[in-house]
Design a protein around this nucleic acid. Structure first.
Lengths: 229, 229
DNA sequence: ACAAGTATGTTGGAAATACAACGATTACTC
DNA sequence: GAGTAATCGTTGTATTTCCAACATACTTGT
């Protein structure tokens, strides 16, 4: 899919988190109103430069975008991946004057739709209804990311591996609404998520099991409420 | 200030992050349009219950609100404080169906303005211009919180105290646009922010100083670019 | 000037974690 | 069904972090 050349599929757009809830009929009107800019990027081409002040949200149409951070000593870190349908830069686009502390790079040849934040917010006579939907989706996306970050932070701010585990498992239990639940990670992924060593974490899990706090099998867990931390 | 009884000061409101940018003349129209609900809470009264599905954003008019989390075993944790002018519940209000994983409690007798998320987004004939401002402020607030969380997370995901420190200091250096800068924390606050032990952190800072990576005096730091991590 | 309090650096021992290595089990492929 | 890879638990050691305690410098209030 080449964005600059060809027309983007409405079927694709209406499934993205940003355009979710709009019908294929509404899309042309809405797109005419928010006036997106389509751009193609070669592999490893820089889409957004650290230090820039951006006002547009990027929507990945095809390819893949990596959000990377370069520190004072020039060490690069991959912060996030944006796949087709994902948006990026939204936290900065709505904060005029806030300079990018990350860069966005096309990890593969990529087609990007750039939507100016002001176009999202400004009123136009014809498409206010669609605007409302767009803004609603935008707020929901931001809120969702916010909750995910807050949640992860609340686990990671615990000092010990055991506390991190209990914080995470307790959280998952509340989501499931049960003391028995499945987690979406294997051990290595869970260790990466909690930023701890896998073997140490595995060890701690087994200790807790031996102490009768919980039982598990693979990714299934069962918390025992009788035991206090 | 009693919210249910008396009129809220427009001078106060227009200084809040949510209503910033609106004039005192516009406020009555806007308020009439978004139809806020004013409620007073006694000390220790629960404002939002864990497990609820809320659709309204809370704005603290007076008093103080604590956001607390109760885990599987009933252990309570204070997640955040909301002071007059601060909003709370915004991440959940814009995500219908997302159940609260925290509770909000009045730490002191408090007056709260509750604004339904739908009223913020829906179009009304008269006040679209003000709505746009409100939504813009809301998005900016959400984006700001998002950046702060991402930033903190990027430091905390480092494994060692030294790496956490370097991540934080590098970030501060980039903000300042210089290798010399001031940080807004004392040692204990920095340790709390990075979730490490103060004395161990102090120790690590001095080791890095002795290795020639940086110099500091109180909250002033100077990074040496010649040295690689 | 003095006392009390606060912030910071320093140290040593206890505890926790990271790391590396390996065995057992399961899943997957040919 | 044999071979391979992936996952998970286990262990021992090296390293790091925590914790408590204390010395020193600096601040503040009287």
């Amino acid at each position: 899919m080449s964005a600059a050349g060809t027309q983007v599929s409405n079927a694709f757009l209406k499934k993205t988190s940003l355009f979710r809830g709009t019908t294929e009929e509404e899309l042309p009107t809405l797109l005419g109103c928010i006036a997106p800019v389509y751009r193609d990027f070669a592999k490893n081409e820089i889409i957004l430069h650290q230090g820039e002040d951006i006002t547009a949200v990027g929507l990945v149409l095809s390819g893949r975008v990596q959000i990377i951070e370069e520190d004072f000593w020039g060490n690069r870190n991959i912060i996030a991946d944006a796949w087709p349908g994902d948006i990026f830069g939204e936290s900065y686009a709505f904060l005029p004057g806030e300079l990018l502390r990350v860069s966005a790079i096309a990890a593969e040849p990529s087609a990007i739709m750039m939507i100016d934040a002001r176009h999202m917010l400004e009123i136009c006579s014809s498409a206010c209804r669609f605007h409302t939907r767009l803004v609603q989706n935008m707020l929901a996306e931001s809120a969702k990311k916010n909750l995910a970050l807050t949640r992860k932070l609340s686990h990671m701010s615990k000092r010990s591996t055991r506390e991190k585990l209990l914080s995470y498992l307790s959280s998952q239990s509340l989501v499931a609404g049960s003391d028995q639940f499945e987690i979406p990670f294997n051990r290595q992924q869970l260790a990466d998520y909690l930023c701890v060593d896998r073997s140490a974490m595995s060890n701690e899990l087994c200790k807790m099991r031996d102490e009768g706090m919980l039982t598990f099998d693979k990714s299934s867990f069962h918390l025992k409420s009788e035991i206090q931390i």
